[in-house]
Every structure is written in structure tokens, then in C-alpha cells.
């Protein structure tokens, strides 16, 4: 069978599907000062998994606000700088009007994912940290 670290080079999803791959990628991103990109990507996935129900409405609202505050509100943040202004105002609107939808971060997540796929993921595959691991 193919060793995990070779599968990580096949696609971003193969990398993000493996806990060791995530850990190594995050260490690399941390060195580059952009671990927030990965944290945000996973936060969006985790948020989407929270099914709307009467029991967790408050939690979903609190979580949506927390994601918004930490990654999107500060325009100088690494995540915020990679998200289109229209996408940011859409999320801001959802939070302000308390219209909490499981898909409200989907577009922002897609934009961050494209940036990772085009930029940090190829750099990771060429990095010392990955080459030493292999």
C-alpha cells in the first residue's frame, strides 16, 4: 500500500484526511505565520456539521459569532485578507441579523481552500519539513 506521506502529495483532500498529515501541514503553516488558514477551514467544516435544532440554536449563534470575530472581522488578519469583500459582508449580515445557516461560511471556506491549493499546499510539498518527514 502507498505510504500516507505519498498520498498527501496527491491532493489537498488526501492531506486533510489524515491526522498526521494535518499535524505536519499545520506545523509548516505555523512557521509561515498562517496556521489560521487551516484552522478556519476546519472551523467552517465543523460549523456545517452542527445540525440546526432548537437545542443548539444558541450554540450555533455563539459559534458563528466566534468564527466571525476571530477570522473575519479584523481586515488585516491572514484569513480576512484572502476573502472577497462581498463574502465578508454576507457573513457579517448573517451574524448581525442572526440568520444562522449551516452553509453561511461555505463561500469563504471555498475561497480559503483555493488559496491553500494554489499557494501554501504546493509550498508545503517542497518544504524541508515535508521532505525531511518523507
Amino acid at each position: 500500500p502507498t505510504p500516507p506521506y505519498l498520498r498527501w502529495a496527491e491532493s489537498l483532500h488526501s492531506l486533510l484526511d489524515d491526522q498526521d498529515g494535518i499535524n505536519l501541514f499545520r506545523t509548516f503553516l505555523k512557521q509561515e505565520g498562517c496556521a489560521d488558514l487551516l484552522d478556519f477551514w476546519f472551523a467552517c467544516s465543523g460549523f456545517r456539521k452542527l445540525e440546526p435544532s432548537d437545542a443548539n440554536e444558541e450554540k450555533r449563534l455563539k459559534l458563528a459569532k466566534a468564527i466571525y470575530k476571530k477570522y473575519i472581522l479584523d481586515n488585516n488578519g491572514i484569513v480576512s485578507r484572502q476573502i472577497k469583500p462581498a463574502t465578508k459582508s454576507f457573513i457579517k449580515d448573517c451574524v448581525m441579523k442572526q440568520l444562522i445557516d449551516p452553509a453561511m461560511f461555505d463561500q469563504a471556506q471555498t475561497e480559503i481552500q483555493s488559496m491553500i491549493e494554489e499557494n501554501t499546499y504546493p509550498l508545503f510539498l517542497k518544504s524541508d519539513i515535508y521532505l525531511e518527514y518523507t
Binding site: L16, D17, D18, Q19, G46, L63, K65, I67, K69
Partner: peptide, 20 residues
């Protein structure tokens, strides 16, 4: 109430693949 950071960490963890 849990802090925002705690909530975020749990959310991020919930999206990660389970260890084999």
C-alpha cells in the same frame, strides 16, 4: 458559558478525521 476559544477548538476538532 464556555469561552469563544474553547468553542472554536471543539468545532475545529469535530471536523478532523478520526485517528485510525
Amino acid at each position: 458559558y464556555k469561552s469563544d476559544d474553547d468553542l472554536l477548538l471543539k468545532c475545529i476538532g469535530s471536523a478532523m478525521p478520526k485517528r485510525r
